[in-house]
Design a binder for these strands. Structure first.
Lengths: 236, 236
DNA sequence: ACAAAAGTGTTCGGGATACACCCATGC
DNA sequence: GCATGGGTGTATCCCGAACACTTTTGT
């Protein structure tokens, strides 16, 4: 694939973009258009790093090109550089089509991001393929070593989440405690007790009740909460 | 510096080797011989990655060449690839001397290791300079972005240490509870209460008492403990 | 009145923390 | 006998886990 921008042909970034829909956690995958060679496996969005471009910068660029998103939590995760990380025949064919020197070992730096799916509007022109959300429970065999990259990213996201209270940016600005609980359950992949969860959240003093309530629901409306002023929504 | 081995000229590893001497935590630094150009800053041991060599493999090679050490905890830490990570004049001069294309941006994958200083016998031939231990409290200004690499490595080591009980390999095979406490204090950089520490350790059931005691000390000899058979000394 | 989700308290066990004195040994 | 580190117990607080019923609203 000819490219007029100068790139580092052996350095790439891959982004594991976790999306929350209010209920479950999903990962953004790219599905190539079938170009008649049976190269059907899905993969993570990623790109070679441009000359003069930083790693974080490249990851942010991929995310921006893909969905015009800026300022989301985007953390470096792990770097994969096994010289044999590409050993499947389908992957090799793909490289022959899209890369200038398909034999070269490519080191990829993986990043993960956490976004609200409703905000995420994929830009169809950004990849030679289609973007789709895949439930975290149900990820198929991916190209290259991308299954491993997703696993590591999920693990790190979970560790990060349990240490520093990130994730509020995935909720509306006023939200119910149940929505918050669903977010926690989606990320940790565990069920939580409603009462214990609420006690814990109250203890943390990060959110506060408003005097508004849900509207338009067919049951008792829940009280809405918001992040307390002065609490940064972005973790470290 | 001509090199007959084929290398990836834009990929390196740097190793943050933490050493424990029974009392404090240190970092291994390389001090170049002064070649009359005032290139006096210390740096981390590291090297370009060879063609066909994996990242972990390269880090292990550096550690092995430096001290003939194998099978130590060596974990990938973070990847640094800012195109301007080399902007000091001294660093640029150093690159002109030691690298074929000193202008190229080099991405470095950092690793950290945790070793017992007594086991560590530096191999003088392995670097064009001298290896020295520097107390973690007292690290000077280093070359390139190596101060930042050390900081990140220490932070990750501490997080790793508090989650999964690593570090027993830094003690003799039979050790006193005080030695173990000093290890914890050196890594976490915090003081601990003796009684509470002992209760906690007992609860974890990773070590057990032997019926041996210290010898040759000028006070009441302490009981010696060992890791219970079947407990892996290596963390994950 | 019924369906659906909201909201609420108590008990138990275990771990974290704070704190001070006697003990065994070598010299 | 004295200096040096070794070794021990108790009380408090907070947190995590387990667990079931009443309330409010829309239809």
């Amino acid at each position: 694939m000819p490219n007029s921008i100068e790139v580092n042909s052996n350095l790439s970034v891959d982004c594991v973009i976790f999306g929350f829909d209010g209920e479950r956690l999903n990962v953004l995958l790219i599905e190539e258009k079938d170009i008649g060679q049976g190269l059907l496996r899905k993969r993570l969005p990623g790109d070679l790093i441009h000359k003069g471009e930083g790693l974080d910068e490249a990851a942010n660029r991929v995310l921006f090109e893909l969905a015009s998103l800026k300022n989301v939590l985007l953390k470096q995760c792990h770097t994969f550089g096994d010289p044999h990380r590409v050993n499947d025949e389908k992957d090799k064919k793909w490289l022959e089509i899209y890369r200038n020197n398909p034999e070269e070992r490519v080191v990829t730096v993986s990043y993960y991001a956490l976004v609200k799916m409703a905000n995420f509007v994929p830009n169809p022109a950004s990849f030679a393929g289609e973007a789709l959300w895949q439930n975290i429970q149900d990820i198929p065999e991916l190209a290259f070593d991308h299954n491993e990259i997703v696993e590591v990213a999920l693990w790190k996201l979970q560790r990060h989440f349990e240490l520093s209270k990130i994730g509020y940016e995935l909720l509306p600005s006023k939200f119910t405690l149940n929505q918050l609980q669903q977010l926690h359950e989606a990320i940790t992949q565990e069920e939580l007790d409603k009462r214990n969860f609420r006690k814990k959240i109250v203890r943390e003093k990060i959110i506060e009740a408003t005097d508004e309530k849900q509207e338009g629901v067919l049951h008792k409306p829940a009280r809405l909460y918001r992040i307390k002023p002065g609490q940064s929504a972005l973790g470290n």
